[in-house]
Simulated assay, not measured.
Amino acid sequence: MTKTPAPRRRAPGMNPGQRREMIIQAAIPLIGEYGAAVTTSKIAAAAGIGEATIFRVFADKDELLAACVAAAVRPDHAESQLASISLEQPLADRLAEAAEALQAHLARIGMVVGSLHASGHRRRERSSGEQPRGAGRDESLAALRASVAELLAPDRDSLRLPAEQIAALFLGLLFTQPRQDDEPQLTAPELVDVFLNGALTARPGESS
C-alpha cells in the first residue's frame, strides 16, 4: 500500500518589520553592484519574493534605497562582532580583531553610499519625522566607542587616559586612514602596533 506523503508545512510568515529587513539585506549587495540603477525586480528575485511584495512594505524604490543606507550605517553588526571578542587575549590582539570588524563596517558603508553616489542618486529631503542629518552618525559612533572601551577595560590600570578617551582616539585613527587606491592600507595588526607603541621604532636614547 502506497503511503500518501504528508502535506508540506508552510514556513511561518514574516511580520512587516522582518520582511523589510529581509528585503534590505537582499538589496544591499545589489546596490554595491548596480548602484541606484538596481531594479526592484532584481531585488525581489534575490530575496525570493514577488516584486509586488516590496511595495507592501516600502512606499517606493527611493524609500527602499534610503532604508538600505540606514542599515549599512547602523552599527549593530559591528557591535555584535566587538562584543564577541575574547577579553582573555592580549590587548593588541583584541584591538586587531576590533580593527578588522570596524574596517569591514566602514567598507560596507562605503560600498552602499559610494555606489549610490557614483550612479547619481541623491538623498531626498527629510520628512518632518526623520532624524536630523548627523544624529544617527553621532549615536553610531557613541555605540562603537563604548564597545571599544569595553575591550580596553581589562587593561584600565595601564592606560594613560580613561578607556572612553582611548577608544575615541582608536576610532579616530582607524576612521581617518587615507583611502587612495595607490596608497597601501595598514593591516589591522600594523595599525594597532602604531597606536599602542607610537610612530618611532625606539624612543630617543634607547636602542632599537
Rank of each mutant, 00 (worst) to 15 (best):
A59S: 07
A72D: 10
G32E: 08
I28A: 13
A101Y: 09
L87N: 01
M1L: 11
A47M: 09
V38Q: 02
L95A: 01
P7M: 06
A66M: 15
I54Q: 00
S41A: 14
A67I: 07
D93A: 15
A92I: 03
R8T: 00
A78W: 09
A47R: 01
L65D: 00
K42P: 01
A36K: 02
A83V: 08
P7W: 14
Y34C: 11
E21Y: 12
R94Y: 09
I54R: 02
M1K: 06
G17S: 14
A72N: 12
P7R: 14
A36W: 01
A83M: 04
I85V: 09
N15A: 08
A71N: 09
P16R: 06
L64A: 06
A96L: 06
S80G: 07
K61F: 07
I28P: 07
R8P: 02
L64E: 05
M22I: 03
A70F: 04
A70I: 00
I49P: 06
M14F: 03
E88K: 14
A37S: 04
R94W: 07
Q89Y: 05
Q89H: 11
R19M: 11
R9N: 10
A11I: 03
T2Q: 09
A47E: 11
L95K: 06
A45W: 04
G35Y: 06
A45D: 10
E21V: 12
I43H: 13
E79T: 04
E88Y: 05
Q25L: 12
F58P: 11
V73I: 04
E21G: 11
R10G: 10
A37H: 03
Q25E: 15
G50H: 03
A44K: 06
A101T: 05
I28S: 13
E100G: 13
L64D: 03
M14Y: 00
K61E: 07
A44L: 04
A83F: 07
R20C: 08
Q18D: 08
G32P: 06
V69E: 13
A67D: 04
I85D: 03
G48W: 11
P29S: 05
P16W: 12
A78E: 15
I49N: 02
